[in-house]
Structures are given as C-alpha cells and as structure tokens.
C-alpha cells in the first residue's frame, strides 16, 4: 500500500500547474526516496524531474516501490476539486488500477478516484558534474525576463561571463538584451543574484519552453539556472524544504 498526506495541499496543486502543460502523461514513482516523477515533453526537447521527500509529508507510507501512471491534465482537474487550504491524502492499494485523492477541510471531506494508466517510460541518468555556470536569481525576475523576450523573439541566447548573465533575443521588430549582474543582498538573500562560473558559456534555447518552466514560479522565490559545458540548460525551483522541480532543456545548435 502507498499513502501520503500533505497538510499544505496547495503545494501539490502548484506542482501540477507547473508541469501539466509541458507533459501529458507521466509515471509518479513512489519509494523510500519519496514521491517523484521524471518525464519528457512530447517533442523530447525538455525533461522534468520532480522530487518530494518523505519528511515533507505529515504521513508517508510506501510498503513497496510502485509506479502510478497518470494523465496530468486529469490529475490537475481532480486537484482543482479540492479547496486551496485542504489537506490532501493520496492512496493506492498494491495492484490497484486506481488512485484515490482525499481532500479534508474543517468543514468536511471529499474523495475522488482516478483511473491509472500504463505508461512506458525510461528513467534517465542525470550527470550533474558537467555544470560550468550557475545563476541563482529571484524567480519573479526570471519569469519577467522570459515574458518580455518572448514578445520580441522566439529564441533566447543565455550567456554567462564574469560581467553577469545576459539574455538576448531577436525578432522581426528588432533585438533585446537584458543583463543581470551579481548582486548580493545580505538582508534579503532571496532577492540576490549570485553567479558562479568555471568558464564563460553561451547557448540558445526556445523561449516557448522557458516560459513554460516559469509556471513553477509560485513554488519558490528563487530559481537556479545552470548551463553545462555541453550547453544543456537546467532550471530548478526548490519546493519549501521538501524537494525540487527541475526542468532540463536541450539547446539549439548552429547547423
């Protein structure tokens, strides 16, 4: 049997809002490590990795590892049936082809049963060692930059140098360049921009995906953007001391 109880149910709603437009169907893996997910978008350009650790839940019981295939739009519909302040319990019996969502509030409770799906998916090994530039900045600022740039062009070039991180785009009406410099705010660390770099790196990415990633903004005040020497982008939002949601995006390369 698998059962988890999340007092701050709104957190799970925010997670679903962050990934449901990027990924259609996904396996939620339940194990001693936590409640996790790894899935690619239908075009296989982006990968999302989610982890919610057991100690973040009021109750977490996982008798044996199970994988629950869910349509994320349907899961989102069910989560929207609960109130924002509700406690959410998710339960699945061994061998069952359904999962139960229970919403509790001081006024009562509600149960929803959703059919599970068989989904073929591969688990991908993620090598973090090739990281050559890391930028941590306010998530709202990153969201604003992606939105502004997508009104000008379709592709963003992200360049990290000693000067800072530059986001550039070009389109029919002209070009746009936004530079963020390192800025440490001791009193409000969440408003800082921190750049760590072993070597300058520059790579370009489709803005459509970047804007999709920023739907995770309500989960965290800060976002961490990493570029590897192979020009792969990782965008990470931490989830209040219980885990993270990470988006990986493959670059566009000059042919």
């Amino acid at each position: 049997m698998f059962e988890l109880r999340l007092v701050q149910g709104s957190l799970l709603k925010k997670v679903l809002e962050a990934i449901k437009d990027l990924v259609n169907d996904a396996n939620f893996d339940c194990s001693a490590t936590g409640f996790s997910l790894q899935a690619m978008d239908p075009s296989h350009v982006a990968l999302v990795a989610l982890l919610l650790r057991p100690d973040g839940f009021e109750h977490y019981r996982c008798d044996r590892n199970i994988s629950m295939g869910m349509n994320l739009n349907n899961m989102s519909k069910i989560l929207k049936c609960g109130g924002n302040d509700d406690i959410i319990t998710i339960r699945a019996d061994d061998g069952s082809d359904t999962v139960t969502f229970m919403f509790e509030s001081p006024n009562g409770s509600a149960n929803f049963e959703m059919n599970l799906m068989d989904i073929d998916s591969e688990h991908h090994g993620i090598d973090e060692s090739k990281c050559c530039a890391v930028v941590r900045m306010p998530s709202s600022e990153f969201q604003r930059i992606c939105k502004v740039l997508s009104s000008i062009g379709d592709t963003v070039v992200i360049s990290v140098t000693n000067e800072g991180v530059q986001f550039s785009t070009r389109g029919d009406i002209g070009t746009a360049n936004i530079v963020c410099r390192q800025n440490i705010n001791v009193d409000k660390p969440e408003e800082s921009t921190v750049i760590e770099m072993s070597q300058p790196v520059s790579s370009q990415f489709p803005l459509r995906y970047m804007n999709s990633f920023t739907k995770a903004t309500p989960l965290s005040n800060t976002v961490t953007i990493s570029l590897t020497s192979e020009l792969l982008l990782a965008v990470e939002y931490t989830i209040a001391e219980m885990g993270y949601i990470r988006f990986y995006l493959a670059p566009k390369i000059e042919d």
């Binding site: 296989h44 688990h123 991908h124 493959a250 390369i253 000059e254």
Partner: peptide, 14 residues
C-alpha cells in the same frame, strides 16, 4: 539555421 537538439542526446536511459 539552428538545429534543436533532443534531450535524449544528453541523458542515458536505463
């Protein structure tokens, strides 16, 4: 012209 790489170019599946 730019070529969009695939995520599977970067990760090893099991």
């Amino acid at each position: 012209p730019c070529l969009q790489r695939k995520i599977s170019d970067y990760f090893s599946g099991d």
